Amino acid sequence: MGNLNKSTLLVNYEEQLMIKRYSYNTIKTYKSCFKEFIDFYPKKNLNQMKNSDIQRFMIHLIRRKNIARSTQNQYINAIKFYFEKVLNRPKETYQWHRPRAVKKLPHVFSEQEVMLIIKSIKNLKHRCIILTIYSAGLRLSEVLNLRISDIHSKENCIFIRDAKGNKDRYTLLSEKLLLTLREYYINYKPSFWLFEGANAGRYSKSSVQAIFKRALVKAKIGKNGTIHTLRHSFATHLLERGVNLRYIQTLLGHNSIKTTEIYTHISKQNLKKIASPLDFLII
């Protein structure tokens, strides 16, 4: 590991991520991946690592942990960051095989199913969290990072700060959500974060995931789904109601329209508008 012990190495690594203004979640993920990498080679000098050493680590992850393709890419990016940003080596194309992305259509709830999920949640705070995610198309981390000041009621919008890719954006503020948020504010009186847990800290991810899982069971919806499915549903339902794809791209905070275009493949309402060529034949 060279002249640096493991703890110092990780501190330096984290500092470089912070200097480069990586998001909190990315820093946490990269640091965890990199720590696992250096633990795998406790006696090796990282500065003298070869591509074959990294390849061996990747094979270990695939064989022993059966990691997903997206997770494998996270490990690769975390290790790549160390060599290029911490050691200041010039960028190069490493001979590490990145897994081919599997293009799967996301699961989506129907509007009826979303309504059943929301109705099954009786706790006001819990219902507000789920309503906010669906009505604004938010990621889980984004709803937990919301501050009270991010709700712009006069402009009917919500400000999303430091989202994926360190980007800020505005998204929709539903009138129904605003009414529920006002009731929630009166009852819970949050001090800084919109949704606060113990000691006025941010509400935890695991708590929101548990809320959603319970709601899914109570609503008796026989579909696999996660919190992120609500975001997919938001985009799909907007598209089905005729909202321009470019607007949806902006609301979701996608860099590329190609990312947003996936929802054109899962919108059943749009499929209904297209007639099969068979329907034009006289038979």
Rank of each mutant, 00 (worst) to 15 (best):
L177H: 11
N5L: 11
N3D: 09
P106G: 05
N123K: 11
I262E: 09
T260Q: 06
I67E: 10
I262Y: 05
K154F: 10
V243I: 15
E183Y: 01
E142I: 08
N145K: 10
Y22G: 07
E113A: 02
K272P: 01
I257D: 00
T71N: 05
R161Q: 10
L17R: 07
F192G: 00
W193Y: 14
L252R: 05
K268W: 03
G137S: 05
K167I: 06
M115G: 00
K85A: 01
K164Y: 05
G242P: 03
A136N: 13
R182M: 05
L173R: 12
P42I: 05
A136L: 10
N77D: 09
I38F: 00
I59D: 06
Q249M: 06
R169D: 02
I62S: 09
I257M: 01
R69E: 08
T180W: 12
N12I: 08
E92K: 11
H265A: 05
F109N: 02
S7P: 00
I227Q: 01
I151E: 08
I221H: 12
S7F: 11
L172C: 04
F234R: 11
P99A: 09
L146Q: 07
Y247N: 04
T71S: 15
L177M: 12
F234P: 13
K125Y: 03
Y188V: 11
L239G: 05
I130L: 12
M1T: 13
I118M: 15
R69C: 11
K44S: 09
N45K: 05
G225N: 11
I117Y: 00
L172F: 12
C33N: 13
Y30P: 10
F234S: 11
I158E: 08
A200G: 04
Y184K: 05
C128W: 00
I27N: 05
H107I: 03
K103I: 13
F57E: 02
K85M: 08
S207H: 04
N224E: 13
N51E: 15
S110T: 15
K167Q: 12
F34I: 07
R69Q: 13
R182T: 13
Y41T: 09
M58Y: 01
T71R: 07
E113I: 04
A198I: 14
Q72Y: 02
G242W: 02
D279G: 01
R21G: 03
L172E: 06
I118Q: 10
I160E: 01
N166Q: 13
K213D: 12
R246G: 01
K272V: 01
F159Y: 15
G242T: 08
L281H: 04
L252F: 09
I121P: 08
L144I: 14
F37Q: 03
Q269G: 00
V11P: 00
E196T: 09
R139Q: 04
I79H: 03
K258Y: 04
